[in-house]
Simulated scan of single mutants.
Amino acid sequence: MSFNNDVKSIMIVGVGGQGSLLASKLLGHVLVSEGYDAKVSEVHGMSQRGGSVVTYVKYGSKVYSPTIDPGEADYIIAFELLEAARYIPFLKKGGTIITSSQHIDPMPVITGAAAYPEDIAGKIKAMDINLVQIDALSLAKQAGNAKAVNVVLMGVLSKFLHFKSEIWSKAIIECVPAKFLEFNQKAFNIGANSSL
Score class of each variant (00 low, 15 high):
Met1Asp: 13
Ser2Pro: 15
Phe3Ile: 10
Asn4Tyr: 00
Asn4Thr: 09
Asn5Ile: 07
Asp6Thr: 13
Val7Met: 02
Val15Glu: 00
Gln18Gly: 04
Ser20Ala: 11
Ser20Pro: 07
Leu21Gly: 10
Ala23Val: 09
Leu26Thr: 08
Leu26Pro: 05
Gly28Ile: 11
Val30Ile: 12
Leu31Pro: 08
Val32Glu: 04
Val32Tyr: 06
Val32Pro: 05
Ser33Trp: 06
Ser33Ala: 14
Lys39Leu: 12
Val40Tyr: 06
Val40Ser: 00
Glu42Arg: 12
His44Arg: 13
Met46Ile: 15
Arg49Ser: 08
Ser52Gln: 08
Ser52Arg: 05
Val54Arg: 05
Tyr56Cys: 15
Tyr59Pro: 02
Tyr59Gly: 00
Gly60Cys: 08
Lys62Met: 06
Lys62Glu: 13
Lys62Cys: 07
Lys62Ala: 01
Val63Asp: 12
Val63Lys: 11
Tyr64Pro: 11
Tyr64Thr: 15
Ser65Ile: 10
Pro66Tyr: 10
Thr67Lys: 11
Ile68Gln: 06
Ile68Cys: 04
Pro70Gly: 04
Glu72Met: 14
Ala73Arg: 07
Asp74Asn: 14
Tyr75Val: 06
Ala78Cys: 11
Phe79Ala: 06
Glu80Leu: 04
Leu81Ile: 13
Glu83Arg: 02
Ala85Phe: 10
Ala85Tyr: 11
Arg86Cys: 03
Tyr87Asp: 05
Tyr87His: 14
Phe90Cys: 14
Gly94Thr: 09
Gly94Ile: 04
Thr96Glu: 09
Ile97Leu: 05
Thr99Arg: 03
Thr99Leu: 08
Ser101Met: 10
Gln102Ile: 14
Gln102Leu: 13
His103Ala: 06
Ile104Ser: 02
Asp105Phe: 12
Met107Pro: 09
Val109Met: 08
Ile110Asp: 08
Ile110Lys: 11
Thr111Ser: 13
Thr111Cys: 10
Ala113Thr: 14
Tyr116Met: 02
Pro117Met: 03
Ile120Arg: 00
Gly122Gln: 14
Gly122Ala: 14
Lys125Gln: 14
Met127Pro: 05
Ile129Trp: 12
Asn130Ile: 09
Val132Arg: 04
Val132Ile: 15
Ile134Leu: 01
Ala136His: 03
Leu137Phe: 09
Ser138Met: 12
Ala143Cys: 10
Ala148Trp: 03
Leu153Ala: 00
Met154Gln: 01
Met154Ser: 09
Val156Cys: 08
Leu157His: 09
Phe160Val: 03
Leu161Thr: 08
Leu161Ala: 11
His162Pro: 03
His162Glu: 12
Phe163Met: 00
Lys164Glu: 15
Ser169Gly: 10
Ser169Phe: 09
Lys170Leu: 12
Lys170Asp: 13
Ala171Phe: 00
Ala171Glu: 09
Ala171Asn: 02
Ile172Leu: 09
Ile173Met: 07
Glu174Pro: 12
Val176Lys: 07
Pro177Gln: 01
Ala178His: 13
Lys179Pro: 15
Glu182Phe: 07
Phe183Val: 14
Gln185His: 01
Gln185Cys: 07
Lys186Glu: 05
Lys186Tyr: 01
Ala187Leu: 01
Asn189Val: 11
Gly191Pro: 04
Ala192Arg: 13
Ala192Leu: 08
Asn193His: 01
Asn193Arg: 06
Ser194Cys: 00
Ser194Arg: 07
